[in-house]
Amino acid sequence: MSISSFLYLPPRAAVTAALLALGGLLSGCAQMGETLGPAFVDPAKYDLYDCKQLETERAAQAARAAELQGLMAKAETGAGGAVVAEVAYRNDYVSARAQQKLADETWRRNKCHETIVAAPAPIVPPAPPAPARGARSPAR
């Protein structure tokens, strides 16, 4: 019996082993990505934004992060989904979270407050005009 017979893996087992190794490597990158996110965002990006612009940007970044998180969760339900989620969505998710954090920090630094939107007044249809005096009521 030779050494090469011990090293031989059936093709299916080799693919499975490679996917598991790749998943392990990518999960390590994902844990590292949360701390490296701020390194990929311009720290002065929101410096010239006023409170109204920051409010809009914060909402947009929160929606984007939630969307990407949903896509990652959906991808993880399929076969090999963890790998797909990491490869396809993780970088965008980390970037969106870093931008959201930076916008939140700028929001606090500028002492901004949420805009209170007043509820619109209900639309009340006008009352029908009252009949004139001496006018006959319609025949029934």
Results as ranks from 00 to 15, higher is better:
93 Y>E: 15
83 V>L: 09
15 V>H: 08
18 A>L: 05
124 V>C: 02
79 A>R: 15
88 A>I: 13
82 A>S: 12
27 S>G: 15
22 L>W: 10
6 F>S: 14
71 L>C: 04
130 A>R: 05
89 Y>A: 05
85 A>H: 06
80 G>C: 07
10 P>M: 14
99 Q>T: 07
83 V>E: 06
140 R>E: 09
126 P>Y: 01
4 S>Y: 14
15 V>G: 14
66 A>N: 11
12 R>S: 09
2 S>M: 10
46 Y>I: 01
100 Q>M: 02
127 A>P: 11
95 S>D: 15
66 A>E: 14
130 A>P: 07
116 I>K: 13
23 G>S: 09
81 G>P: 08
90 R>F: 10
73 A>K: 08
76 E>P: 10
67 E>T: 14
81 G>R: 07
82 A>M: 09
15 V>T: 04
112 C>Y: 00
106 T>Q: 00
72 M>Y: 08
41 V>A: 03
138 P>T: 07
57 E>W: 02
119 A>F: 05
8 Y>N: 15
34 E>G: 12
14 A>L: 13
17 A>D: 11
60 A>G: 04
91 N>C: 07
64 R>A: 04
129 P>K: 13
24 G>E: 03
6 F>G: 14
43 P>M: 01
66 A>G: 09
105 E>P: 00
54 L>V: 00
67 E>M: 07
84 V>T: 11
43 P>T: 06
101 K>D: 06
99 Q>S: 04
25 L>A: 15
73 A>M: 07
113 H>Y: 09
77 T>Q: 15
103 A>V: 01
63 A>H: 02
105 E>R: 00
48 L>P: 13
126 P>M: 02
5 S>R: 12
67 E>P: 04
86 E>Y: 04
35 T>Y: 12
109 R>D: 03
64 R>E: 10
140 R>P: 12
124 V>Y: 02
135 A>L: 01
28 G>L: 09
122 P>W: 00
105 E>L: 02
82 A>Q: 11
39 A>Q: 04
108 R>L: 08
93 Y>I: 09
87 V>S: 13
83 V>M: 06
65 A>P: 00
56 T>K: 14
3 I>Y: 12
81 G>K: 10
49 Y>H: 01
80 G>V: 04
45 K>G: 05
23 G>F: 12
10 P>V: 08
10 P>Q: 08
38 P>A: 01
59 A>M: 02
31 Q>M: 15
40 F>Q: 09
7 L>V: 08
55 E>W: 02
120 P>S: 03
34 E>A: 09
7 L>M: 13
123 I>A: 04
78 G>D: 14
